[in-house]
Nucleic acid binder design. Structure first.
Length: 303
RNA sequence: GGUACCUUGACCGAGCGGUUAGGUAGCGGUCUGCAAAACCGUGUACGGCGGUUCGAAUCCGCCAGGUACCU
């Protein structure tokens, strides 16, 4: 008997939430969230997290489980979701993962290489060294320490260089030695359902959603988390702009316009990523019955 | 009515006789441990009409629009 994981994905603001609830109800499963920012509690409005009512309707996992200062990664997510899936599949044939965080979805579907977790000490040391010694010095160091990765790395991207060095200093082994590019086989089927709509339509929804978020109290929410503004969890569209407003640098109107733009940019990046995945079955979010029929047909053939 | 200053690509913005300014957005792309992150590629525009010049976004004249001050 085959187990099937349904993955509902799509750009931010496309309209995943309502469909995910319906699919969950159809399958009788909880929802495993695949949105890297909805993982954090205290950010319900700006991340458009499922509401209390929605969570009462369908049980959600991986929503609001992290504190703003917590360290988290796609690899941890992979481990935790796979654990949860094991539990789900123990008494059900289906599971549902929904969200738009591309790397997180890939981590669950394809796996991520086993790379040592970086200790705080190494992380802060490298961060400081990047600032004091500069980009070029660290890039040169990477060339010495890990010529293989240096040859293929995006050398202009600080995150890539710093991380490769972090891994080296953490483990004593070059970063490239951990990279296998191997897709892991999962003990279940995966059916990916993508939601998308014409870009003008998507952008229109994003624009008005920002207005709505502010009406629902985004400013107050940002005010509340302001003390944590330097945490990675708040290097997030919707918050970084509001902090500029709260700091008196921008007007509210300007900050909102920035949020709209940055959200649009994010949506485009998501679509670029998803475009490579030929396994995705695409639907317009309004094609409600079609989507549910598709899920139902996959559900019956897979069991 | 007069005087002065301004007018650059979707937007912001440099340029002061002869090189692609640059930034943001847009469009396209990268991505295996902070990913709603980080990074990369991509645009010959100078309000209109004349003139000066080998050559004008850059100088001159007129016109249009704008801003400031004056009567």
């Amino acid at each position: 008997m085959g187990k099937t994981l349904f993955v509902l994905l799509g750009p931010t603001g496309v309209g995943k939430t309502e469909r995910s609830l319906q699919i969950a109800e159809l399958l009788g499963t909880p929802i495993l969230n695949a949105d890297s920012r909805q993982l954090f509690r205290d950010l319900p409005i700006g991340t458009a997290a499922p509401t209390a009512e929605q969570q009462a309707r369908v049980k959600h996992h991986f929503v609001g489980t992290l504190g703003l200062e917590d360290y988290y990664s796609a690899a941890q997510y992979e481990v935790e979701v796979l654990q949860q899936l094991e539990e789900e599949f123990a008494h059900r044939d289906h599971a549902l993962l929904t969200g738009g965080s591309m790397l997180y979805i890939d981590a669950v579907c394809k796996g991520i290489d086993d790379i040592p977790t970086i200790s705080d000490a190494v992380r802060t040391t490298l961060k400081a060294r990047y600032e004091t010694e500069g980009h070029d010095r660290l890039a040169q160091e990477l060339q010495l320490v890990d010529p293989d990765y240096y040859a293929i790395a995006d050398l202009r991207n600080p995150k890539r260089i710093v991380h490769a060095l972090e891994v080296y200093y953490e483990s004593g082994r070059p970063y490239s030695s951990f990279r296998t590019a191997m897709h892991r086989q999962r003990p279940f089927h995966i059916v990916k359902i993508g939601l998308n709509r014409p870009r003008p339509e998507l952008f229109e929804r994003i624009n008005s959603r920002v207005t709505q978020m502010v009406a629902e109290g985004l400013v107050e929410e940002a005010q509340r988390v302001l003390p944590f503004r330097h945490c990675n969890s708040l290097n997030t569209v919707g918050y970084k702009e509001m902090f500029r407003y709260l700091n008196g640098e921008w007007t509210l109107e300007f900050a909102m316009e920035k949020i709209r733009r940055n959200t649009r940019v994010y949506a485009k990046k998501q679509l670029t990523w998803f475009a490579h995945d030929e396994a995705i079955h695409w639907f317009h979010p309004d094609a409600e019955q079609e989507i549910l029929d598709f899920v139902a047909s996959c559900a019956t053939t897979s069991t």
